[in-house]
Computed example of a mutant assay.
Amino acid sequence: MEVEGKTDELKDLEADFANLVLLAAAGSSEDLRLLLAKLVRKYRARRPDFAERINQALKSTQTRASGPSVLRRGPTAPEASPLPMDADSRLSLIRVFDDLAGLEAPLLTQGLLKQIQSIVRERRERDKLSAHGIRPTRSAILVGPPGVGKTLSARWIAAQIGKPLWILDLTTVMSSLLGKTGNNLRAVFDHARANEAVLLLDEIDAIAKRRSDESDVGELKRLVTAILQEVDAWPDTGLLLAATNHPELVDPALWRRFDVILTFEQSDPSTIEAAVRRFLGPDAPAYEPFLHLMASSMHGHSLSDVERAIASMRRDAVLNGVAPADLAVSLAAQHIDRLDKPAKLDLALQLARANGMSHNKIMALTGVSRDTIRKYAGPSPIKGRGRKKEG
């Protein structure tokens, strides 16, 4: 039996060698590198020394390649190497964000930003860690509701370590032919590993649902198992990220595969205010007296909601010549229904102190009584209707 096993392994090696020769003779350098990456994964467990020799050879050929490569840092990196495509539709399986020219740091809590900065530093100083026998963080899963900065954070991480971000495009990968979906996934992982990429599996819950979910057929459950194996085999040379809005749907086994869990929460008031200032761009100085007012009115909204609201407001200012004070009040009016009672009181007092509205109008907008507004903000400075006669 042992002799028979060795014979089968020899045949396997001969078949792999024959494929290498065919690709080399055809001059298919990209396909050749992809096959080498597959062989590294295939032999890592059975023949680790052999797999490492192949891996070193792969790195060497990528570094010395005369043409442009996705490993080379530059604005043309994403176009330099063909991305994996669906065989039937000929659509790319990967979407690319190339932010190598620069990207502002995401607006996050200090604790979360510190975690992300730590991952970036580990990637930059990978050799230093390796010299002490320490592996850098290979993978992280980003968890949180929509619009809190998960994708933007992934883009920023990639930019900080000099890589474009590759996002697995589930709309193209998923197929009614489930076996084909598995092939598409393997093509993406193989290509990403070969190029030491930063790969993001967005909406991971769509393809890594709990295997106990009785609504899924057996093939989908096998697909989840395949994803778990791919995550296990992910090398130190690349960074694998995943994102989900629905952590309760993700297979529990997947959580254990990721080195780090990054939890994104709804933004606090100070973060919302910083976002308003950033999204106002060069117009921020004109809105400085109303920044806190606008931020308060957007309390509880996602940063993407804030960005859309501010963009709409700026367009209104340019096209219709609306004054900043009026735009700030209009923004507050649009989102007043989502505020709780203390937040409405805070907003009412800000409006009163801004000296732009009568107490009557503030009461109509916020539901806070004139007596309460007067108690905390003093008499209305607006003459005429809305101001009680003094004395």
Score class of each variant (00 low, 15 high):
residue 5 G to Y: 10
residue 6 K to F: 14
residue 9 E to S: 11
residue 15 A to S: 14
residue 16 D to W: 10
residue 17 F to H: 14
residue 19 N to T: 06
residue 21 V to H: 06
residue 26 A to K: 15
residue 30 E to S: 13
residue 39 L to R: 07
residue 39 L to K: 03
residue 44 R to E: 15
residue 48 P to I: 05
residue 48 P to M: 00
residue 49 D to L: 12
residue 51 A to G: 01
residue 52 E to W: 09
residue 54 I to P: 06
residue 65 A to E: 12
residue 66 S to W: 07
residue 66 S to T: 11
residue 67 G to N: 10
residue 70 V to L: 13
residue 70 V to H: 03
residue 71 L to A: 04
residue 71 L to D: 13
residue 80 A to F: 05
residue 81 S to K: 03
residue 82 P to E: 05
residue 84 P to Y: 01
residue 85 M to C: 06
residue 90 R to L: 12
residue 93 L to T: 01
residue 98 D to R: 02
residue 100 L to G: 00
residue 102 G to W: 02
residue 106 P to M: 06
residue 108 L to Y: 09
residue 108 L to N: 07
residue 109 T to L: 06
residue 110 Q to I: 08
residue 110 Q to P: 02
residue 113 L to V: 01
residue 125 E to I: 02
residue 127 D to G: 11
residue 128 K to P: 00
residue 133 G to Y: 02
residue 134 I to R: 03
residue 135 R to N: 11
residue 137 T to V: 13
residue 142 L to E: 02
residue 145 P to M: 03
residue 147 G to R: 02
residue 157 I to E: 04
residue 157 I to T: 05
residue 159 A to S: 14
residue 160 Q to E: 15
residue 160 Q to R: 11
residue 160 Q to N: 12
residue 162 G to K: 03
residue 164 P to T: 06
residue 173 V to E: 06
residue 174 M to S: 08
residue 175 S to P: 01
residue 182 G to K: 13
residue 183 N to H: 12
residue 184 N to E: 09
residue 185 L to T: 05
residue 187 A to G: 06
residue 188 V to E: 07
residue 188 V to F: 12
residue 192 A to P: 11
residue 194 A to D: 09
residue 197 A to C: 14
residue 208 A to K: 07
residue 217 V to L: 12
residue 220 L to I: 14
residue 220 L to Q: 11
residue 221 K to W: 01
residue 223 L to C: 02
residue 223 L to M: 14
residue 232 D to M: 08
residue 240 L to H: 01
residue 242 A to S: 09
residue 245 N to V: 09
residue 247 P to I: 04
residue 249 L to N: 05
residue 250 V to K: 08
residue 251 D to T: 06
residue 252 P to T: 10
residue 255 W to L: 06
residue 256 R to C: 07
residue 256 R to I: 10
residue 257 R to K: 11
residue 263 T to P: 02
residue 267 S to Q: 12
residue 269 P to E: 02
residue 271 T to S: 08
residue 272 I to L: 10
residue 274 A to D: 09
residue 277 R to Q: 09
residue 278 R to V: 03
residue 281 G to T: 03
residue 283 D to M: 07
residue 284 A to Q: 14
residue 288 E to L: 10
residue 290 F to Y: 15
residue 293 L to Q: 11
residue 294 M to T: 01
residue 299 H to S: 14
residue 299 H to C: 00
residue 300 G to R: 06
residue 300 G to V: 01
residue 300 G to I: 07
residue 302 S to A: 13
residue 302 S to E: 08
residue 305 D to R: 09
residue 306 V to R: 01
residue 314 R to I: 15
residue 323 A to M: 05
residue 324 P to K: 07
residue 324 P to V: 05
residue 324 P to W: 04
residue 328 A to K: 09
residue 331 L to W: 07
residue 332 A to Y: 02
residue 333 A to N: 06
residue 335 H to K: 09
residue 339 L to I: 08
residue 345 L to M: 08
residue 346 D to S: 03
residue 347 L to M: 08
residue 351 L to F: 00
residue 352 A to E: 00
residue 355 N to Y: 00
residue 356 G to M: 03
residue 357 M to L: 15
residue 359 H to L: 00
residue 359 H to N: 07
residue 360 N to I: 05
residue 361 K to A: 14
residue 363 M to H: 11
residue 364 A to R: 13
residue 364 A to T: 05
residue 365 L to F: 04
residue 370 R to K: 15
residue 377 A to K: 09
residue 380 S to I: 00
residue 382 I to A: 04
residue 386 G to S: 04
residue 387 R to W: 03
residue 388 K to Y: 13
residue 389 K to L: 11
residue 389 K to R: 15
residue 390 E to T: 14
residue 390 E to I: 12
residue 391 G to I: 13
